[in-house]
Amino acid sequence: MRTCLFLFPAILLASCAGNNERTGSEPDELSASLMLETNYIKPAAPVMVYGIEGYYTGFFEAEEFDANKNYMWSNKITVSIDSLSETTLYGHSVVAGNVRPFSGTYNRADKTWQATVSEPGDDRYDGVFTFSVHSDSLVLRGTWTANDKKLAVTKRKYQLEHRVFGYDPNIDLPEDVTYTKLYGSYNEEDESVEAITEDALRFNPSVTLLKKEDIENMYQGDLEVMRNSIYARHGYSFRNRRMRFLFDQLVDWYMPVSVNITGELTDLEKKNIDLLKRYEAHAEKYYDVFGR
């Protein structure tokens, strides 16, 4: 019998104590994005003028944190340098379902650019980025310091590589995704966790129009990963940790560039999303209850 439940003693990614730092638990990723439309920035690739504009993607790792709080040690972030003026550098960051603009001063010494830029300050998780970019290697490294010192993570560091974003429907999830335990799925009562199976890789829902026979026998977690892989291909930045952890940590090609991709979805993807959601909803509600 194939089973998605491993009887593991708690090999845990993190405990589930509170809920803080850039996270949420929206069951539907796309509804979460609607809240952020006011500061939504269209992911149009910045134009190189000064030689350092563009997207830089990599891990945004905790450096100073309150270990008693439920924090995310590492998130994938895209820092975009959008444009520069004589004195000011403009850009935005995309991480954990949050798009935030920033601007600040910079100075340049030969090929190294140093910048200190601030987020607007009207969001709980705003702070100040201090980084340097080398215009040959196009590596952006530095730190971020939170304005609010009571956050679970008050300082993060990063070393990001310049990357161009392009939507590629043909790109598949890596094999490593199989048997991954879904973040937050640990059940204390029976010490089980929910894991992804090879089913999640069976179809690419950005390319193949799914039939109900294709997915009716799949576990909810696999369906969820399939559906979210569509969003990931479009560079959607995940707010909920369950999906974010998987795509951030295991999917190399994934880069968060946007929180609103509704307009980017193809008709085929929309059809698949609709079908997958039906089966996910059914599994969520009826899989383990008295009923069909």
């Binding site: 019998m1 194939r2 089973t3 439940l5 009716e216 026998n217 899989y287 209850v289 008295f290």
Partner: peptide, 12 residues
């Protein structure tokens, strides 16, 4: 169905 799912977590 309830018993089988609780015991074996089969595919739906």
């Amino acid at each position: 169905k309830y018993v089988i799912v609780a015991a074996f977590h089969p595919h739906p």
